[in-house]
């Protein structure tokens, strides 16, 4: 049965298909075959990478882990009415902090992994603190300050990894490899990058779902996001809830960075992939900021990425097709679901 609620979602799917068709056709690739290749890339078809044969689920599950966490990060802030564009910076800071913690000696072996993940999350939370403090105390728009903090994080982590935290045994701007005890095991021995971080991300989804929808804290936080003045009149401590939601948001992004270090890269390096923080915006918006829908939305984005990479590897079509489709999707979601409720235009 086709309900009116489903129409926008179907239209959205149609738009994505139309954009994909247009981009593939304009690249001069055969349509049917290209869609087949994208589908293969998105659903775990074995392929050959520069490192040798790769299980495509590896790429999809790896991306999903990070996008679940950065998507949750953006979503929890948005639920409190804050737009955290700074997940990319918080991820970078969390990753560097986790890499530092992972190389420390003298940490008990059994605690090394939780310690590194905790330090990463803590660093992400701290990085989110100044923007939300500026928002609550000075009324500065959090979008502007988180953008500024993204760039400050970029240069700060670069400075630290080239000057102070560099692996002393080499010349490359990267930290030393973290201790064995601080590594997250991979999901399967055939995998190169997807680790048990996915389990942590799924736990975060469940935890946040319960917290946001089954606790007083979650209710007050969502009320703050829905209508700040009404929440305040009803007695919710809105400044506190905003600060807490933003710290949680930063911690989730920092945790994503820590998991990328402990589960996949085993070190921090110059040019560390912080863009997963940016992609979290699309994931959160597509899921309507609801943790329960985050797995679907994160899988879609990861599949799109992986599919486009696969198409690029097979046919040479530009892999930026994924970026364009993602942009179209965000615009569509913004126009259909995120309209402001106002009388005048």
């Amino acid at each position: 049965m086709l309900t009116t609620r489903m129409v926008p979602a179907l239209l959205g799917a149609l738009m994505v298909l139309a954009a994909l068709t247009l981009l593939i056709a304009a690249a001069g690739k055969p349509l049917g075959e290209s869609f087949q290749i994208i589908l293969q890339g998105a659903t775990g078809y074995p392929r050959t990478d520069t490192f040798g044969p790769v299980d495509a689920w590896d790429a999809v599950l790896h991306d999903m882990t990070l996008l679940l966490l950065t998507g949750l990060s953006v979503a929890v802030a948005l639920q409190a009415g804050l737009f955290n564009i700074g997940a990319a910076g918080q991820l970078l800071v969390g990753a560097l902090a986790a890499a530092w913690a992972g190389t420390l000696s003298g940490v008990p072996e059994r605690l090394h992994l939780p310690f590194a993940l905790f330090v990463g999350a803590l660093a992400g939370a701290l990085w989110a603190f100044v923007p939300v403090w500026l928002k609550v105390r000075r009324g500065a728009h959090e979008v502007i300050s988180t953008i500024m903090f993204n760039y400050i994080a970029l240069y700060l982590t670069h400075w630290l990894v080239t000057e102070y935290l560099k692996d002393p045994t080499g010349d490359a701007p990267q930290t030393a490899v973290i201790a064995e005890a601080a590594k997250l095991p991979l999901l399967s021995q055939d995998f190169l990058s997807a680790s048990w971080g996915l389990g942590i991300a799924v736990l975060a989804v469940l935890g946040l779902w319960l917290t946001l929808y089954r606790t007083v804290w979650g209710y007050e936080t969502r009320a703050t996001g829905a209508n700040r003045d009404a929440a305040e009149s009803a007695g919710a401590p809105i400044a506190r809830r905003m600060i807490e939601a933003m710290l949680l948001s930063g911690a989730l992004a920092g945790l994503a960075g820590a998991i990328e270090v402990c589960g996949t890269q085993y070190r921090f390096f110059e040019g560390f992939p912080g863009e997963y923080g940016f992609d979290g915006i699309a994931v959160a918006l597509l899921a309507g900021n609801h943790p329960a829908l985050m797995p679907v939305s994160a899988w879609l984005m990861s599949a799109l990425r992986s599919g486009a990479y696969h198409l690029h590897a097979e046919t040479g079509a530009p892999k930026e097709i994924a970026v364009v489709v993602q942009a179209v999707l965000i615009l569509y979601v913004a126009a259909v679901y995120l309209r402001k409720r106002r009388m005048e235009g």
Partner: peptide, 18 residues
């Protein structure tokens, strides 16, 4: 369409990059 200004801006940056 009364879309959120920030979200639209994010999409435009992505669109231009892609």
């Amino acid at each position: 369409l009364h879309a959120d200004h920030i979200v639209s801006g994010v999409a435009i940056n992505l669109l231009a990059l892609g």
